[in-house]
């Protein structure tokens, strides 16, 4: 799924954080890393692409859809159907076990009906990410690496065409970092998804097709994120 940004301007409020992207084109299936100093707008861009926030001006097009022109419900439905989001802090729900955390988007959204084979897909996805024996475990009993794999599993289960990952390895030790990244790339490839990942780890950049430095998008008045 291709991504196109045209004349985008966004700010959280007058005098607060501001990001301007005149033009950005990302081809479908690309592996792109977003780098740049903290507060440069990397996470905000992921949120703009996911339709979680909307710009004050400009256009954000994902696939053929101008996401920012959709109403709230439309943006949410688009996000659910087409976009997977992996958060830096995992965003797992404590009172649910691994299985229910993976299934959570299906429980919450009627746009993702729980079909008969969903359970077997959860198992397959969990096996791919070495979580098969953890499906019934409470998430707070998992290691950080395992928790991030659960978050990835949850993001990939609906087979998104665009996978957004916000520093998915930021909280992990080097061993887990490589493992998670391998699995993320594998899963994105098998799903033929476009992968956009925010990272501060320059050692990882060789693995991406393209690296976008957000320093070029910063305006002089930009504040911190």
């Amino acid at each position: 799924m291709r991504v196109a940004i045209d004349q985008l301007e966004f700010e959280y409020g007058p005098g607060r954080f501001r990001i301007c992207i005149p033009d950005l084109q990302i081809e479908a299936g690309a592996r792109v890393a977003f780098v740049g100093p903290s507060g440069s707008g990397k996470t905000t861009l992921l949120r703009l692409l996911a339709g979680i926030v909307t710009p004050q001006s400009g256009t954000v097009t994902v696939g053929e859809v101008p996401v920012n022109e959709l109403a709230d419900a439309g943006r949410r439905a688009f996000r659910i159907r087409h976009i997977g989001f992996v958060f830096q802090d995992f965003r797992l729900v404590e009172h649910l076990d691994v299985r229910e955390n993976i299934l959570l988007p299906y429980r919450l959204n009627v746009a993702l009906p729980v079909f008969d084979s969903i359970e077997s897909q959860v198992k397959q996805q969990a096996e791919r990410l070495d979580l098969a024996d953890k499906l019934d475990s409470p998430v707070d009993e998992l290691s950080q690496g395992e928790q991030q794999r659960v978050a990835i599993c949850r993001a990939l289960l609906p087979r998104p065409e665009l996978l957004l990952a916000d520093e998915p390895t930021g909280n992990l030790d080097p061993k887990n970092k490589d493992r998670i990244l391998d699995q993320l790339f594998q899963q994105a490839e098998s799903a033929e998804a476009t992968l956009l990942m925010v990272t501060h780890d320059h050692a990882l950049l060789d693995r991406f097709d393209r690296v976008i430095d957000f320093a070029e998008f910063q305006k002089p008045e930009a504040a911190h994120e």
């Binding site: 979680i52 965003r91 729900v93 404590e94 959570l104 919450l108 959204n109």
Partner: peptide, 15 residues
Amino acid sequence: REMETLFLLGCSRGT
């Protein structure tokens, strides 16, 4: 935070 997570996962305010 839990509610924000649900929102990020596509959960509507109504849900």
